[in-house]
Design a binder for these strands. Structure first.
Length: 573
RNA sequence: CGGGGCGUAGCGCAGUUCGGUAGCGCACUUGAAUGGGGUUCAAGAGGUCGCCGGUUCGAAUCCGGCCGCCCCGACCA
């Protein structure tokens, strides 16, 4: 490709809308263009890279036994009503009607459609296991697209679905995908770690997310430096210990606390740690008010809470809702509370003499004890793990690991789910086993977002000058720079080399523009091809070319006639 | 959806306080010089000042409404 003809222009200044390095570089290198919030166009350099990413994914999916197919982006709403996900995912579904007022959705994912296909084509256990995938556009009306390509509303996903006869088969399919994912991210030059995750609106049991750790990520993970436990904060377990066990329970006592509306203010006033208090939080669970109690120094994990309540729509109550539900903000407490569901963190029964709201304005209670003074309708783990929380992973030999965990941000590069029989039962994906009995297929689903992967590749492979493309996904292998190409000897030598390298099968970007050396070198660094080859009056005087790898600072001169072989060798190493 | 910020040329910005008919740098076009890390000079082209309405002799600027985009949170495979 001649750079003078390349569609896409580099920018000297970074557009103000971009904050993360990957977003800034993608814009500055002229790779992408934003059309609307979370909607992007991909220019030739980006498109070549995305196709390389897709090629790697296809190779690994095929190697794992996957068969590629293609499903539509337009789905009749009935398909989504049948699974119930027209409600579960209603906030992110793009919906529309055709001219006969038929309702459709733009597919945010394809479990419903693949199950349809399964039903039409699979009858027998002999047809299983089945691994099918597609690389398809997904549409999700995300509440907040962000970070350039990190969270899009229209994006491309490789989604593979596995169907097995039983859970042992699912474990095997899951394992295959898990390993394929490790290879894919490795080949793309993005270091990822698998972490335990929440299955969210997808339903199902086991699930891992493949996380690329970066401060620009939107997911939070807890990592144990000792035993390797890794989990999304949504589901992270940890060891909870009572803070004050040596005390005897004391009689309850009401004290005036005007103006003390926060746990911190209350604890400061009384000269006690926040772990000596019981915090009240109000949620609306599918429209029902819920009183949530947790130790004052801890925060509620809404994913755990949502699971415990088995709710579809869970949200923090607004001021109005709190008042309407009859709660007393600032002094709410569970003691004597009636007519509302109470859910408490399972650590509370092990604490003694806590300070809690008196459930009337400007008053709190001292020495509140679970069991004696109040009880919850539901008692379970609803606490959020934080930096330093103790690892609760267990091994046969030592019991709980108990090492303080680290908190890191990360980007979710892919997720693998064991869906189980949820969709099969809901939508009727069954097969006949060897005894002629009808049984539900056991499903798994496995996704990778390609644009997000592109963003992570740039995030993980750049320096202050620009992108440094990993070998397998680079849009071009060689960036051929001709300095003063209008001079006959330079132009001739560069053109000849350009032709020769292409004949030899290299992908070459040839900077044939009439620009100064500084401009060309800076663009070469910004665009980030692995190998820069310079032809100039200066190199030709010595009968040579200059080779410089993007990842290294030094360059070397090689004789003209050795050019092609040296370039080949350099790219192979 | 809550909080914050921003919309003036392709990109980065000034001008808005105090109303007088739009400017700077980069990029772009033409010419010349230069030629190994965003070189220089000269001459150009390019703007419904996000949109609608109002006030006014006159609105980028004041008033009202709306829209879009970014960030934090909520939410989210």
């Amino acid at each position: 490709m001649r750079m003078s003809r390349l569609f896409g222009k580099t920018l000297r200044q970074t557009p103000a809308e971009a904050e993360t390095p990957s977003h800034q570089l993608l814009l500055r290198a002229g790779l992408v263009h934003q059309v609307a919030a979370g909607v992007y166009a991909f220019l030739p350099l980006a498109w070549r890279t995305l196709q390389n990413i897709e090629r790697i994914i296809r190779e690994e999916m095929d190697a794992a036994g996957g068969q590629e197919l293609m499903m539509p982006a337009i789905h009749p709403i009935e398909l989504w009503q049948a699974s119930g996900r027209d409600q579960a995912m209603k906030d992110i579904l793009f919906r529309f009607s055709d001219k006969r007022d038929r309702e459709f959705v733009l597919g945010p994912t394809h479990e419903e459609v693949i199950v349809e296909l399964f039903k039409r084509n699979i009858r027998s256990y002999r047809d299983l296991p089945l691994l099918v995938y597609q690389i398809q556009q997904k549409f999700r009306d995300e509440p907040r697209p962000r970070g350039g390509l990190i969270r899009l509303r229209q994006f491309t996903m490789k989604d593979l679905y596995s169907f097995d006869t039983d859970f042992e088969g699912l474990d095997l399919s899951y394992r295959k995908m898990y390993e394929a994912y490790i290879r894919i991210f490795d080949r793309c030059g993005v270091p990822t770690i698998p972490v335990l995750a929440d299955s969210g609106a997808m339903g199902g049991r086991d699930t891992h997310e493949f996380i690329y750790l970066t401060e620009y990520g939107e997911d939070t993970c807890l990592l144990c430096p000792k035993c390797g436990y890794a989990a999304n904060a949504d589901v992270a377990a940890f060891v909870k210990e009572p803070a004050h066990t040596a005390e005897e329970p004391k009689p309850i006592e009401e004290i005036p606390t005007p103006g003390l509306y926060t746990i911190q203010a209350l604890a400061d006033h009384l000269g006690i740690p926040t772990s000596k208090t019981c915090k009240a939080v109000f949620y609306s669970a599918d429209g029902e008010p819920v009183f949530v109690a947790i130790r004052g120094d801890m925060d509620v994990n809404e994913t755990k809470l949502s699971r415990a309540l088995r709710t579809v729509d869970l949200h923090y109550m607004s001021e109005d809702e709190v008042v309407a539900a009859g709660f007393v903000p600032g002094s709410a407490g569970a003691v004597g509370l009636k007519g509302v569901r109470i859910i408490a963190d399972d650590l509370l029964p092990r604490e003694v003499n806590l300070v809690a709201g008196a459930n009337k304005p400007d008053a709190h209670l001292l020495n509140v004890n679970y069991g004696r003074d109040w009880q919850a309708d539901t008692l379970t783990d609803i606490a959020l793990a934080v930096e330093g929380s103790l690892c609760s992973a267990t091994s046969d030999k030592q019991g709980e690991c108990r090492t303080p965990m680290d908190v890191r941000r990360g980007i979710e590069m892919g997720q693998v789910f064991k869906l189980g029989t949820f969709y099969a039962e809901k939508l009727g994906a069954t097969y006949l086993d060897a005894e002629g009995k009808q049984r539900p297929a056991v499903m798994g689903s496995y996704g990778i977002g390609t644009e997000r992967l592109l963003a992570a590749v740039v995030e993980a492979n750049h320096d202050e000058r620009g992108i440094i493309w990993p070998a397998e996904i680079t849009p071009f292998q060689v960036h051929l720079v001709a300095l003063q190409p209008e001079r006959d000897e330079v132009g001739t030598a560069a053109e000849k080399l350009y032709g020769r390298l292409q004949t030899d099968g290299f992908a070459v970007l040839y900077d044939d523009r009439d620009e100064t050396p500084g401009v060309k070198f800076n663009d070469a660094d910004l665009l980030g091809m692995p190998l820069r080859v310079t032809v100039s009056p200066r190199t030709l005087e010595k009968g040579s070319l200059e080779l410089k790898r993007r990842s290294e600072a030094e360059s070397e001169l090689v004789p003209l006639d050795e050019g092609p072989s040296r370039i080949k060798a350099s790219l192979a190493s």
